[in-house]
């Protein structure tokens, strides 16, 4: 599990901008000491909403946490209206993230849509460790693409796929898999993860899952999934799981 326990704090929005029509990047300044690995998430509190919202962390350093989120409902819609300089109550350092040490020399990172963000800090850490990651970023169409350039600037080999072929490789992420890779990390919609699960048999990997959560820190059992090793909580035991423990049909 993660080393440090979560922290609650008040964070100031220092940058907030739209990356596409409905995907936003928010950079928050505050205590980031509870963040210990890529793939962890935060739980944000929004005025007028009872439950906190889990949002994956795209990147973090000693002073800031970067979130990239898509407006999908009332909560994220309210989040999108927040202004730079405003503050937000967050729980940080939640969940068990990606294991950088498992990667081998030529890991593959596969992100679909709003599943792309948590792979960014992972790619950064892999490159810092001297690995040579290939990153496949899958979107529906050209207007939805974000962060391809940012991954390239880190030094990763980037392949973009679009379902309609308006940019990059036409098709799904599984249509662009390199012939060889040492390990696969992925985050994205369930149909994509399942397709990748089938396509990447024989190579070990870690998948980050999404589930509607109650608390975000393991207390309520709201986000349980069944795995080969029994019941697991997406928020506390995950969101990143070894893909081998997932109880999915090939």
């Amino acid at each position: 599990m993660c080393g440090a326990s979560m922290k609650q704090g008040i964070y100031t929005i220092v940058e907030h901008k739209a990356l596409t029509k409905d995907v936003y990047r928010m950079v928050l300044a505050g205590d980031t000491s509870a963040m210990t690995m890529p793939g962890q998430f935060v739980e944000i509190s929004l005025p007028g909403f009872f439950l906190r919202r889990p949002i994956s962390v795209c990147d973090y350093d000693e002073k800031t946490i970067t979130l990239i989120y898509k407006v999908v409902g009332q909560g994220t819609d309210a989040m999108a209206k927040m202004k730079e300089g405003e503050t937000m109550d967050m729980l940080t350092g939640l969940g068990h993230g990606f294991g950088v040490e498992k990667s081998g020399d030529t890991p593959l990172l596969v992100g679909g849509g709003v599943g792309v963000p948590p792979l960014f800090n992972l790619a950064k850490k892999l490159i810092a460790a001297g690995k040579k990651p290939t990153v496949i970023l899958g979107f529906n169409r050209a207007e939805e693409i974000f962060y391809a350039r940012e991954f390239e600037e880190l030094g990763a080999s980037v392949i973009v796929t679009t379902v309609d072929g308006s940019e990059g490789v036409k098709g799904f992420v599984t249509d662009a898999l390199p012939p060889l890779f040492s390990f696969v990390y992925s985050c994205g919609p369930m149909p994509m993860l399942r397709a990748l699960y089938r396509a990447a048999q024989g190579t070990a990997g870690e998948f980050s899952l999404e589930e509607r959560m109650g608390c975000g820190f393991g207390a309520c059992m709201g986000c349980s999934i069944m795995t080969k090793e029994g019941s697991r909580r997406v928020c506390k035991d995950g969101p990143v799981f070894d893909k081998e423990v997932l109880e999915w049909q090939i």
Binding site: F49, F50, L51, E211, R212, G214, C220, M221, G222, C223
Partner: peptide, 13 residues
Amino acid sequence: TPRFAETPSCRIN
């Protein structure tokens, strides 16, 4: 799942 829904002042589980 899903096991949770909410209103401004409550959760439903």
